[in-house]
């Protein structure tokens, strides 16, 4: 099981977190329809490092972002999201 370093709470078990989506697929409010489709419905889907949006759902409930390797599950960076936590 992954140990996820929550920027607010410190290292916690993955069971406390929920994956939301890769950062690339966040749709800006002023996106054109084509851009929204691209962001919502296509993915880089990398095998390797990927910036992702997670939530410490069963902890501080804050949104966080992780640079996580999808092949090894290693987490290289974890950061709070300004104004969202």
């Amino acid at each position: 099981m992954m140990l996820i370093p929550c920027p607010h709470c410190g290292p916690r078990a993955a069971a406390e977190f929920t994956f939301e989506r890769p950062l690339e697929s966040i749709v800006p409010l002023d996106a054109t329809p084509a851009e929204a489709v691209e962001r919502l419905y296509t993915r880089e889907n990398p095998r390797g490092p990927s910036w992702e949006l997670w939530r410490h759902a069963y902890g501080c409930r804050g949104w966080i972002k992780l640079l996580r390797n999808t092949a090894t599950h290693e987490i290289a960076e974890a950061a709070a999201i300004e104004g969202a936590a």
Partner: peptide, 13 residues
């Protein structure tokens, strides 16, 4: 497992 991965090994949870 509810998150993207290519690991082909699952989580114990």
């Amino acid at each position: 497992d509810m998150y993207p991965t290519y690991a082909q090994r699952g989580m114990s949870m």
